[in-house]
């Protein structure tokens, strides 16, 4: 279940071949131990989302290395990166990115399709996740009919369907009110207790100051400007 992520001199440039090249991440060294909740904090444009995409194999760094359990994953061919996205990392996107026109259950099952599991087992697993997250009764609903909180829980269930060891959430409370944000933190707490590694990006004080958070890494202009432990008690 546990996965250790390390970053060595990671940089990411956009519009690399243009004169107005922009370095969104500009030389980050970071070690994220297995388990626990880490929050990447910082203002808009500080490089939080870009860093999450690099860790989660959604993009490759321009320079530097990303290692997972000591193995360099930044130079892996696309099929291997896809396998990591499918089985090691689960993503909860800021705008949830659910596929419209499909039911909640279908959306949750999507990441498992390429593995070709038995339909009955997959449906059972997805339904159990939805029940656990408190939206079992919405399994047959089309995702466009969901409230913000329901959509987020659907996105979390989708991220967990292949039982990943690392869950990445980009600005998870950006579209939620306080009550729903606190409910989200409860879910985070449960997942942490299972021994998963959680990596969140947020500039919401509610998240940064939550008791479930182990560590806050402050970013600005693509660099780490502060890195502090916030919680003494061990995970799990």
């Amino acid at each position: 279940m546990n996965a250790r992520v390390e970053l060595w001199g990671v940089r990411k440039a956009f519009q690399e071949d243009h004169p107005n090249v922009f370095w969104a991440v500009d030389g980050i060294d970071l070690a994220l131990p297995a388990g626990g909740v880490t929050v990447l904090a910082g203002p808009s444009g500080s490089g939080k989302t870009t860093l999450l995409t690099l860790i989660g194999c959604l993009a490759r760094p321009t320079e530097g290395r990303v290692r997972l359990d000591g193995r360099d994953i930044s130079g892996l061919p696309e099929p291997f990166l896809a396998a990591l996205r499918r089985q090691t990392f689960g993503f909860v996107f800021q705008r949830f990115n659910l596929i419209r026109g499909l039911t909640v259950l279908d959306n949750v099952m999507l990441p498992a399709y390429p593995l070709g599991p038995s339909h009955r087992a997959l449906t059972r697993r997805a339904t159990a996740l939805l029940v656990r997250l408190g939206i079992g009764h919405r399994a047959g609903a089309l995702v466009e009919s969901l409230s913000g909180g329901e959509a987020q829980r659907t996105a979390i269930a989708r991220a967990l369907i292949n039982d990943p060891s690392v869950l990445i959430a980009d600005e998870p409370t950006a579209n939620l009110d306080t009550a729903l944000s606190l409910a989200f933190l409860d879910i985070v707490s449960d997942l942490r207790a299972e021994g998963r590694t959680l990596l969140l990006s947020s500039h919401d004080p509610l998240v940064r100051e939550a008791s479930v958070v182990d560590r806050v890494v402050e970013l600005r202009d693509g660099r780490v400007v502060a890195d502090h432990e916030t919680r003494a008690e061990p995970a799990g």
Binding site: A82, A83, R85, R86, F93, L110, P114
Partner: peptide, 14 residues
């Protein structure tokens, strides 16, 4: 949609 499918672990071949 293709971006989402790829992000959740679908391969180019899928």
């Amino acid at each position: 949609e293709i971006g989402i499918l790829k992000a959740v672990g679908w391969e180019t071949g899928d």
